[in-house]
Write a protein that binds this DNA or RNA. Sequence first.
DNA 1: CCAGACGTTGTT
DNA 2: GTCTGG
DNA 3: CCAGACGTTGTT
DNA 4: GTCTGG
Length: 267
Amino acid sequence: MCGRFAQATGDRGLIDAFSIHQVMASELGPSWNVAPTHPAYVILERYEDAAGPVTDATAASPALTRQLRTLRWGLVPSWAKDPAIGSRMINARSETVTEKPSFRTAAGKRRCLVPAAGYYEWQKLGTGSRPRKQPYFLHGGDLDTPPGSEPLLAFAGLYEAWRDPSLPEDHPDPWLRTFTVLTRPATDALGHIHDRSPVLVPRELHGDWLDPDLTEVDSLMAAIPEPHLSPRPVSPAVGNVGNNGAHLIEPIELDGAPPSDSSTDSP
DNA sequence: CCAGACGTTGTT
DNA sequence: GTCTGG
DNA sequence: CCAGACGTTGTT
DNA sequence: GTCTGG
């Protein structure tokens, strides 16, 4: 699963890391608590008219352009009547994404990458009527990686554009652009915390994943290896979407256990 | 034909 | 938009 | 994902 | 319990 993540790398760093051609993003500060409906940076590839504004009469052929954009988390399908549906479209199962009406069009030609330092998951602990929820920060480093030095991850995502009918005909940009994060069954190593994990696209597959002309999504998906991630117990403060800051990914001591992972939960 | 759904997670 | 259920 | 609301009438 | 908002 992936219902909360950290995106701490700024536009400059992302331009370098993902070979961005064009920045079409509103600037975002770093966030260690990106929640559904929040804006986040994504990388996508589109055909852009190379032609200049008015004066260029010779229509240049459109060029495939890798862009950095700021999209809202929670995919709103183009046919949606109410954009609130996006809150429940934050993830898409990779196993069924090419079949589901809400996702399959985007899966074919609107794939994107979502850069992240890591993501959070909550482990349910305790037997009583008041089970505690312990959040973990999952990242691409090892157990000794200092907070803030985690390697940059790239979630597999899909994006859509929804025309907001409440905006006037002549509105300069009446489109709400949104994205979702694909999930897959978690490996055994992570399965004891949660049974789903985001799909992580390795660097050598970034080009294929973003290419809107590659429509063989299932073979693309099959080429993506299992993620290798480390869990780090963190403060429950991340639960409140109003909290933010680098302290949210700092390790904490678990009661009666060292800050490595262990299955201290109940049956 | 029209009407209504279209999703994931986790929990039991 | 497109599919399913009635 | 978690946190927080979940309602109406009428009055200040 | 379940839905909405973030």
